[in-house]
Write a protein that binds this DNA or RNA. Sequence first.
DNA 1: ACCTGAACACCGTTCAAGT
DNA 2: ACCTGAACACCGTTCAAGT
Lengths: 254, 254
Amino acid sequence: MTSSPTRRAPRRTDALTRERIVAAAVELLDAAGPDGLTFRVLTERLATGPGAIYHHVANKGELLEAATEAVVAEALAADPDSPAVAADSATATAPAHRGPEPTPRQRIRALALGLSDAIERHPWLAGQFAAQISRGSRLPATLRIFESVGRQVRALGVPESAWFVATSALMHYILGAAGQNAANSAAARELGPGASRTAFLDATATDWEGLDPEEFPFTRAVADQVRRHDDREQYLAGIDLVLAGISALRQSAG
Amino acid sequence: MTSSPTRRAPRRTDALTRERIVAAAVELLDAAGPDGLTFRVLTERLATGPGAIYHHVANKGELLEAATEAVVAEALAADPDSPAVAADSATATAPAHRGPEPTPRQRIRALALGLSDAIERHPWLAGQFAAQISRGSRLPATLRIFESVGRQVRALGVPESAWFVATSALMHYILGAAGQNAANSAAARELGPGASRTAFLDATATDWEGLDPEEFPFTRAVADQVRRHDDREQYLAGIDLVLAGISALRQSAG
DNA sequence: ACCTGAACACCGTTCAAGT
DNA sequence: ACCTGAACACCGTTCAAGT
């Protein structure tokens, strides 16, 4: 009976490590969202008991932080100037240099798109970032993003006194707008496998057009724009907007 | 025994209404954060059973939404041009008109400060906003904020094609930076009743200065600025930065 | 229609016991 | 040192029963 031929959870062969636990957590988060990550299914997946997991991780919060950090490190690794890469400079697979050095502006766009893609692939990230920022304790993941954005702000020639504001403004837009886009994608996916992004945007537009004209004149007026909305284009336009604000500031206060 | 003279939960006199439930929820959230709101303590506080609450509210999520909406409506009520006020124009207590009409820029600053104060008073709001935005379904609270900001963007003379980007950029900064500030305040409060905001900022600065110079050069460099940081001033500077970006865009694409 | 409160399924976490 | 798994306290939610 103990060795019955029926299918069962695959017996663990490797030792249980923190990395394996975190990797499994990321998989569960991707598959079923934040509520899908429970110690019950995690122990099942890893073929252990809860005690074993608690031996490698202090609690669920730490597990979530570790999962966030792992995924962010991966996303920032695309940026050759990122702290994650600098810390792990032994990787010989990183492409050396192709063409001329990218400008800070190009790097910021690439950084933003990289984070946006990461959030799109791991929608639970958005809530996690927000929780980290609004819980104040600057944890590794958010701190690394702050650092990556800040380096490019500095490279942009922003006067030192404005580094913090400029970096904050950029970071909040990058993370906020990316989270919103990812939410739209997720909602579109839920509408059905065939239903495209456009179908969902159209639904929201129609929704907004149905709002009370007294209470929501602006939202109603903007609804039709949402309909023919290109996420990526709008996202980059927003980045350009903040960058324009930064360079205006450079000219006046520099 | 049933009518023993020992102290017990105050017997309810008024009928249980959705508003009373929501008000109690806000109190609990303020006092103990998101984890402090449970049906157990809520029923105790309202001297009922869980079934009674479920008769007025579908589930915990709806309760959180309602709490958020209630607090946001209050915060936006300060803005005479807000949808919340327009919908409730019967209030005779609203101050009519004092001095000249404020400019859109002044209104945006007032709006931002009002929301910042609300988040400061109800720190759980930050997480709630983030959850709403990153869950995509544009719920009343976030939608009202979008509307309020958008009206001023329109009043600013931004070309229609840029309404959405400009409003998004402003909103993400307003909410993101306010959430971060509130988190700092909360963390400072936890440091002790006497410990001021400055003490906490100093601690973070020292923290950052201790980071690895290879991995976090920018964050280290910016640490000292954080030490002599005036939250409100920096917050408004960030708003000005985004506004500068908006007007740059108005000149080029207008 | 509105409320009661026991019961249910599930959650994160602990801990004595094993190897 | 690393793992096991039963047990604990607590959670959101349901529902038959009362008024």
